[in-house]
Nucleic acid binder design. Sequence first.
DNA 1: TGGGAGGGTTGATCTGGGTCAATGCGCCGA
DNA 2: TCGGCGCATTGACCCAGATCAACCCTCCCA
Lengths: 248, 248
Amino acid sequence: MLQEDFSFVSHDCGDCPIRHRAVCARCETDELERLEEIKYYRSFEAGQTVVWSGDRMDFVGSVVSGIATLTQTMEDGRTQMVGLLLPSDFVGRPGREGAAYDVVATSDLVMCCFRKKPFEQMMETTPHIAQRLLQMTLDELDAAREWMLVLGRKTAREKIASLLAIIGRRDASIKSLSMQERIVFDLPLTREAMADYLGLTLETVSRQISALKREGLIELQGKRRVTVPDFSRLLEEAGDDSDGGLLV
Amino acid sequence: MLQEDFSFVSHDCGDCPIRHRAVCARCETDELERLEEIKYYRSFEAGQTVVWSGDRMDFVGSVVSGIATLTQTMEDGRTQMVGLLLPSDFVGRPGREGAAYDVVATSDLVMCCFRKKPFEQMMETTPHIAQRLLQMTLDELDAAREWMLVLGRKTAREKIASLLAIIGRRDASIKSLSMQERIVFDLPLTREAMADYLGLTLETVSRQISALKREGLIELQGKRRVTVPDFSRLLEEAGDDSDGGLLV
DNA sequence: TGGGAGGGTTGATCTGGGTCAATGCGCCGA
DNA sequence: TCGGCGCATTGACCCAGATCAACCCTCCCA
């Protein structure tokens, strides 16, 4: 039970299938027990807003199940997604008052939260928590900057391929997938959400997905289930030299 | 002397004209002395590369004077700037082996560096350093995400206005400038570098700057010196509701 | 059992910004 | 004093992706 609830805290720093571990608490120590005291769960329905940008946010936590998005909106309604939260991802800004972005549940969502004040106090007394959070934040910064390249310089086709690659990689048991393997996964986002992520319109997203399908780079079962017969070919389309940016 | 060399470490956490302080070492304590032992300076000429992406980077540090840029490059040569380093900004990734981006001196540059290993050791023994770095990294993450909105959703005109606003705000004694004030500053970037930052071509940058000038939103003395007669009007053009994103 | 809402696709047309190319303007070194 | 080089501007043209609009599918509920 502990293990599952604290998926983001309960793993040692070694090799771990869960990408974001907020705190390496060296499982089973009394730190975990202290966390137990200040934790609680929150559930959201698809479409519900977790916090609005600027709102006071008095917790930190992690996604247990479901998907949430971080978005920014201009007053005229243009929106840009700036992050995607998948299970085990951390949310929250220790030391900050308000939320910086709208956090919206894209599917039904369960979060495991910790009250911020006591969590911050724990940070003071347990130095490796701050160090762990620093590592995680550096990961997110890398992902955000990787995304800046996507947004600023890639074509629509490359953007779509990049997004599929990221979701596919992350979904399909991240580690050690051989690049030529056949990969199947579900898109956790509507075409519109994908467009908001990629700085495109939903029509362009739809057209480009159709094009990739027509050319055999991907196959579709229904609207959401995607099969990638040759992952390395997809990476080429993404213009990705690196092994692909992690996405927050 | 200490004060100046350690501009990024030597200020208390209170109100401070220097935006990025890596460490609040509560001036004059022995922590500063320990930093003194592991510090050294490096100078670079305009155009020189500080580190290449992927290279081993065995130091952290801060910019003393001059400007540097963080850029990512695709194999076909397309480049995207992902950060701008101005005096007092921190560079480096404690706990990471390699550099994640190319760091290039845009002007003559002096950096105050600390050897990474001992710096990391200090982090372990001095908890508030990690906490300070976490705050800084959160700032950079905010800036990066703000920039994602600029790259993904703003028009060329808005992008230029956003960049001018950010540089102007930061240059012209950041704090408490009344928004209607007349502001003068120098662009630290060529048109091409601006284009790389904004995800545009240099021709578009040039045209949009000319347009803003034609319409009286800005005045130019030479190519680089910019006068903004009414800052709030510039912010409007930037489509900026917020008080404007900080730029890393 | 039917209609309507939410998501998705596709077509026709328009346009912002990219591309290519010529020209201008200091500044520096011979 | 004259190139020449690096940076910037401007013009002409083009195209990727936005916009506007029609239509499809499927699930749900009256």
